[in-house]
Design a binder for these strands. Structure first.
Length: 616
DNA sequence: CTAGGGTTAG
């Protein structure tokens, strides 16, 4: 059959339309036309269709494009390259091998770069090595571009020495080379090396700064992250939405509300492009800095387009959960479903946490069941952990233990800690004893559980047993994380450890504490000395309690802020029973709102009451 | 008509 318009194929009226197609059904119609008209046998029309398909958001357009390529009688290199780039591993590499077998097409440097990039997802280096050899043979590796992909490939495989070697041997490096190497070090958790590379760079762009800042955040060095962000501004580099998302995460962790607010203002003022991650980071920052109202205001006023992403929803849900606003969390979740946002596993962690903090045992059970049956999400260990916490904390200790036995996954530290914590709350020393010993035998290095066990013993007066556990802990040679509370005052952070005497105002703080205790006792406060682990006299135990980091921080705040100012404290551990009890009295006696963020959630103390209703 | 680096909720 003769092709009627062989010479004027590019003038065919249908070709002008191909580039304008915007939906999958339209592409399918056009495809049918190409088949009927015979145009599908040429290389350009299917190539154009593939290009259009790859730009469509629909998830089925990628497999469709793949099939179109495989069925094209004369596909071009451009189509191969685009698809090798777009397909997931290992389809990408299979397509690349298919291309190598084709006698008509020779791979170019694009092809090799995309194929090398696919090797990031290989479990072994063999595939990548082979491709490198190939690119050398074809004389393609001389390009900086291909070298940079090789650096990334080695980094993805965790082979930083190899990545470094390629970098060192390059005779020409650009910003991408430096940034890829730094990202490689960050990826394997070696932020120190990343920083060294950063310091050696001849020039830096926003990605260079963001990469190291993100590295600090990932390893939990939030202060270093903030410091580098400050240096970035001094250097005159303009942060973008990536940078700010990361810096906001640092603010959240440091409870740096003032700096977080500054970033929010900066985003508006500098017209930083808002996206779902940045919005979620802002919501998270306000929540984690104790300002749940601002978080909600921001979420409610956010653009609907941004709320088609699950991130802002999850950030808000987690905010409700950590603030103990269980009913609001559940309403939020129901609203989410109404808006057709499909919940994911993160959603359920927050939702179950919210149920746990609100003692909503039945609701929690139902939601847990619905994960698999309605939403098709397999519960993971975190979700099982939430359930153990929910059941145990509400006093269903037996059920919690049975639940652990029936789990399809091996219980981890978090699960045992949740059960032990429940034993402590409900004073079940028999179960606590049994579980504690069980964990002790299988994981002797698990200090968290041993602390809990010692706590269980001492709160029931079994001093000898408590002492034994502590002695064993000493043998393992590691120390428990000390309690630490911090507070932001005029943009400066003040840290307090238990019995800390390092603060410049120590003398005044301790004097203030004595006076505070007198006032609290007059208002009816009785210390909960069962919280003290040590076998010492009652009066001394009271002294130990009075020097808990949280009380030092509150005393410092009361001394240094005007009456009526809310006090925001962040603790690295759970708040202890006595501190909780005392803080309620402090909020009443000193007429202050005190917001304490502990390791798990917030406590809002006001007028003698706490938002957790003494259930935490 | 295609390139390579950085964001990630509990």
């Amino acid at each position: 059959m003769a092709t009627p318009a062989r010479l004027s194929i590019l003038d065919h009226p249908i070709l002008a339309l191909l580039g304008k197609l915007r939906t999958l059904p339209h592409v399918q119609q056009a495809h049918a036309h190409l088949v009927v008209s015979g145009l599908v046998r040429h290389s350009f029309p299917p190539s154009k269709l593939i290009q259009v398909l790859l730009s469509l958001p629909s998830t089925s357009s990628l497999p469709y494009a793949h099939l179109l390529l495989l069925h094209s009688p004369s596909p071009n290199l451009f189509s191969f390259n685009s698809l090798i780039r777009a397909l997931p591993f290992p389809s990408s590499l299979l397509l690349f091998r298919g291309l190598l077998r084709s006698p008509l097409l020779l791979p170019n440097n694009y092809t090799l770069a995309f194929a090398l990039h696919a090797c990031c997802f290989c479990s072994s280096r063999a595939e990548g090595e082979q491709l490198r050899a190939q690119s050398l043979r074809r004389g393609l590796e001389s390009s900086v571009f291909v070298h940079n992909v090789v650096i990334k490939m080695y980094s993805c495989l965790g082979l930083l020495q190899d990545a470094r070697k390629v970098f060192d041997e390059m005779d020409e490096r650009d910003l991408f080379s430096w940034n890829s190497l730094m990202a490689g070090y960050v990826g394997v958790g070696d932020v120190r090396m990343a920083r060294e590379v950063f310091d050696d760079m001849p020039e830096r762009d926003v990605v260079s700064w963001s990469t190291v800042i993100a590295g600090y955040v990932q390893e939990g060095s939030f202060t270093e992250a903030m410091e580098l962000f400050r240096e970035m501004q001094l250097a005159g580099a303009r942060p973008n939405e990536f940078t700010l998302t990361t810096v906001l995460a640092a603010c959240s962790n440091l409870v740096a509300l003032e700096q977080g607010k500054w970033i929010h203002m900066y985003i508006d003022k500098a017209k930083i492009k808002m996206n779902d991650r940045l919005l979620a980071a802002l919501i998270d920052m306000y929540s984690k800095c104790g300002d749940a109202e601002s978080a909600l205001r921001l979420f409610n006023s956010a653009d609907n387009a941004l709320k088609s992403s699950i991130r802002p929803w999850n950030a808000m849900l987690s905010g409700f959960a950590i603030h103990g606003l269980s009913e609001a969390a559940i309403q939020h979740f129901e609203r989410m479903k109404m808006e057709n946002i499909a919940p994911d596993k993160v959603t359920f962690v927050s939702l179950l946490n919210a149920c746990s903090h609100g003692r909503l045992v039945d609701k929690g059970r139902l939601y847990f069941e619905s994960m698999k049956s309605i939403h098709g999400i397999d519960p993971e260990i975190e979700h099982y952990g939430c359930m153990v916490d929910l059941l145990g904390r509400a006093g269903h200790l037996k059920e919690a233990e049975e639940f652990i036995k029936s789990m399809p996954v091996t219980p981890d530290t978090a699960i045992w800690s949740a059960l032990l914590a429940a034993c402590k709350i409900h004073r079940d020393t028999v179960m606590g004893d049994r579980i504690g010993k069980l964990v002790n035998n299988s994981e002797p290095e698990n200090l968290g559980c041993q602390v809990l066990l010692a706590n269980i013993y001492s709160s029931s007066g079994r001093w000898v047993d408590a002492k034994d556990v502590r002695k064993n802990m000493g043998i393992t040679g590691r120390r428990k994380t000390p309690g630490c509370s911090s507070i932001e005052l005029d943009g400066m952070f003040h840290q307090f450890f238990v019995g800390d005497r390092s603060h410049p105002q120590t003398k005044q703080i301790y004097l203030f504490l004595e006076e505070m205790y007198t006032k609290l006792k007059m208002a009816g406060y009785v210390p909960e000395i069962g919280e003290v682990l040590l076998d010492i006299d009652g009066e001394d135990r009271e002294t130990v309690l009075s020097r808990h980091s949280e009380k030092l921080a509150i005393a410092f705040a009361l001394m240094n802020t005007p009456p009526g100012t809310p006090i925001r404290i962040v603790k690295n551990l759970r708040v202890c029973g006595d501190c909780h009890h005392a803080t309620k009295f402090i909020s009443k006696v000193y007429e202050r709102v005190i917001i304490v963020r502990d390791r798990i959630r917030f406590h809002h103390f006001e007028d003698g009451f706490c938002s957790c209703k003494d259930y935490w």
